[in-house]
């Protein structure tokens, strides 16, 4: 052990610490079994899609680029929820449950730094999964559609998917910060984003009869809406009414800007509440 102290090092500012923490956390994610498992799951989904396309060659899909991408790329919302569950479900709760938090919290870092650094790492790991799915979809698109392989709408949809990913992760981190057991974060995120919000959206539309602007799954529909004709870029949704067998059904289509605002609002609110919660959580 050195007998003369070299002098206390200057602790980096919090922003720099966020980047450093995210880098090491991302390394942890990339080496983890869960990363490999998710790659395998997305690979399997891609293989099934590719197999079904190759076997059935559905003319409705292969006839036009936009329909093809709307249907295939639409599956990215499931990939996003899976990635959020895998990388965010235990991001905060795991620090308590696995006692890794005791290692981090002994360091001169603000709790906000830990939260944001871990969020950034989970976000980047999840983006890698989204890009993997994109590669599978685009690979199929290039093979079947050739010239029409890459419509510009796909780029917009990718951006919307990334914003949706941030919002889902924000909520996942919030759930994770509410509990000291990882399983609750996993289950709550999966249930809410795979079924819960969709059911809520239906209830708001059908029973209350208003635009479900407060439901994130409605905002996420912009990811596929962008491939439709006459895209609504605005801040307000558009309704359409269909009457069949004396029953009138109203459906709402979210505007692209509206969807982005809703998703960002989800991110901001869940991140603020999650941070507030983590700042007050004790490592007992």
């Amino acid at each position: 052990m050195a007998t003369a102290r070299a002098g206390l090092a200057a602790v980096p500012d919090s922003l720099a610490q966020v980047g450093k923490l995210a880098r090491y956390q991302l390394r942890e994610y990339l080496r983890s079994r869960r990363f490999l498992a998710l790659v395998a799951i997305i690979g399997a989904i891609g293989a099934i899609l590719t197999g079904l396309l190759g076997y059935y060659r559905p003319s409705a899909l292969l006839g036009g680029g936009l329909a093809f991408y709307s249907d295939l790329w639409g599956g990215v919302t499931v990939v996003i929820v899976l990635a959020a569950v895998f990388f965010g479900g235990d991001a905060i709760a795991g620090e308590f449950q696995n006692k890794t938090g005791y290692f981090l919290m002994g360091l001169p870092v603000r709790r906000t730094t830990v939260y944001v650094g871990k969020f950034l790492a989970a976000f980047l790991a999840s983006v890698a999964m989204v890009l993997l799915f994109l590669a599978i979809v685009v690979g199929n698109g290039v093979f079947y559609l050739r010239a029409a392989a890459l419509p510009w709408q796909l780029g917009v949809s990718l951006v919307l998917a990334i914003v949706y990913l941030a919002a889902v992760l924000g909520a996942t981190f919030l759930f994770s910060s509410l509990f000291k057991t990882s399983a609750y974060g996993f289950v709550l995120t999966a249930i809410l984003f795979l079924f819960g919000f969709t059911i809520l959206q239906e209830l708001v539309t059908d029973l209350v009869g208003i635009e479900p602007w407060m439901v994130i799954s409605y905002a996420a529909s912009t990811i596929t809406n962008v491939f439709g004709s006459g895209v609504n870029w605005g801040l307000a949704g558009q309704s359409s009414t269909v009457t069949e067998f004396r029953t009138t059904t109203t459906t709402w289509t979210a505007g692209i800007a509206e969807g982005v605002v809703i998703m960002i609002a989800y991110l901001v609110v869940t991140a603020a509440v999650g941070l507030w919660r983590f700042e007050r959580e004790e490592f007992t």
Binding site: Y24, R27, E28, K99, G101, Y102
Partner: peptide
């Protein structure tokens, strides 16, 4: 309290 280090590091 004998903390755990991220296992893959």
């Amino acid at each position: 309290e004998s903390p755990e280090i991220y296992p893959s590091l």
